[in-house]
Amino acid sequence: MKNLKFLLVGILFGIVLTKSEAISWYRIYEMFKFQAFHMYGIIGSAVGISMVFMLLFKRGIIKDYLGNQIHIKEKKKGFIRTLVGGIIFGLGWSLAGACPAPIFTLIGNGFLGIIVVLLGAIIGAFIYGLLSKKLPN
């Protein structure tokens, strides 16, 4: 099964998110209150090390498993969409205490209330899709 590797990557990601407590509502609250370094340390060190990977990908020093050049997708441009979208996401992230990956991992942790958040997130993505052409960029 060609997707088995993604299942394993997902499992590893779920374990790391749980064991690092990054899925905890309290850790997100604490981060936005600037009362602990924990989340800043996780995101900061992940970004720092990823920067080295990105550089190696761009220079072609590391290729993908088939030996092809690795391409990093360019993010959509548009100041309003990224800032306003970011603010809206930030409001939800801090209220639910979970961003998209933790939403799924929390289901595995047995917090079934998070399914309501997932339902809301799917509805939110749907409404965005309906309005996408009318919203400012």
Binding site: G85, A96, C99, P100, A101, V116, G120, G124
Partner: peptide
């Protein structure tokens, strides 16, 4: 919880990405 989820779903798609 539903509103929090809505903000997450709408916001990430408008912004073009989330934490990851």
């Amino acid at each position: 919880l539903l509103i929090a989820g809505f903000l997450i779903g709408f916001g990430t798609r408008y912004a073009g990405g989330c934490t990851s």
